[in-house]
Design a protein around this nucleic acid. Sequence first.
DNA 1: TTATATACAAACATGGATGTATGTAAATAA
DNA 2: TTATTTACATACATCCATGTTTGTATATAA
Lengths: 205, 205
Amino acid sequence: MVRKTKLDAELTRQRIIDAAREVFLARGVSRSTLEHIATRAEVTRGAVYWHFKNKTEIFHAIRDQVFLPLIDRMDDTLTVENSDDPLTQIENSLCDTIHELNNNIQMRQTYEIMMMKCEYVDEFATVLQQILNNCSSITDKFELAYKRAKSKKILAGPHTPRALALDTHLFFSGLLHMWVKDTDGSKFRFQATVLIKSHIQLRRK
Amino acid sequence: MVRKTKLDAELTRQRIIDAAREVFLARGVSRSTLEHIATRAEVTRGAVYWHFKNKTEIFHAIRDQVFLPLIDRMDDTLTVENSDDPLTQIENSLCDTIHELNNNIQMRQTYEIMMMKCEYVDEFATVLQQILNNCSSITDKFELAYKRAKSKKILAGPHTPRALALDTHLFFSGLLHMWVKDTDGSKFRFQATVLIKSHIQLRRK
DNA sequence: TTATATACAAACATGGATGTATGTAAATAA
DNA sequence: TTATTTACATACATCCATGTTTGTATATAA
């Protein structure tokens, strides 16, 4: 039995992606061979080359499957404009992402790969620009939310929404990095939401 | 002329390290060959294997040369206990690191390699633990400084020194990551010190 | 029903990286 | 002065990953 139905083919494609994610995580992207991935997916390299041009294409497939939905989701939480508590809105968008990291294995693995198991050179360098762009966009959303918070007079101190947004973005960026690195959970994973609440609390009047 | 004097040998060793740093930066650690490094250093692989066991050992040499002094330096700035303004002390320690990143090419390159051009698996995984440990230690230093600030009554709000320290650490961790990624400087590099001052200002009564 | 395209497996060909072994001229020790 | 290291360069052997080509059974279209 060689030739599969279209649905079967789609299943093996997904199996290859899943296998690649786990192999990447364990061995790092550059040390992972297509043979490793194929074996883990219980196919041959022939199947892998049928579905993907090369390793880079698998990498992007993994990334797109997890990151594109996540960005949309974060956007959604932040963009609601008629919230009566924009600070809680920011807090929720951050906690929501952490919550996803905790519960969604694929997402956790993907984050770990992107942050610690790949090298941003050549073909991968373009990914960096995308990351930068997403960061800008998220920071802008934070700023808008802080503006709304300011007009509602719930902000402590005289700080500009822009400065607060940048600070929050850097805080969260750092938190994500530490969350991912802290694989035993002792230092950051277990108290991530507490840290977020505390960060927001700093801004509340 | 083959055999060199001891001083000459030390020079070629350093040339190999410098070459490796630039090759790692351009090609990523795993795609960098000892041949690449040797060529750039204007020696042969023979010389490289004479001075280093393998690529990993070069990697550690690069790291140690830059990071060990940096950590000491940050410790020094933070540990002075009789400062009359602990908040400025924290601010200075952060700004000082950014200043070093701006002025010290080797340090900048090394940071970039560690953050974006290597994969933390196998032999490199141990480096991660070191990073985590350094982070804990720095956070502890922050906490002590914030405690001093609290006892001097210059802190705004009711927040604990521990929470403030963690928040600052995450902020700075994020800043370093973004600083490194922002290679054209437009988004973070040029305004890093402003962001730091603003972050500290948030805490000042 | 037959022809063709699909979804792979298996085989092949190539290049490149690693580590080691060997060679060697000069520095240094004795 | 001679013997012995030292600091490399050169040559060799091995392995491994990649990409491509070929083969093939079957799903699907006509």
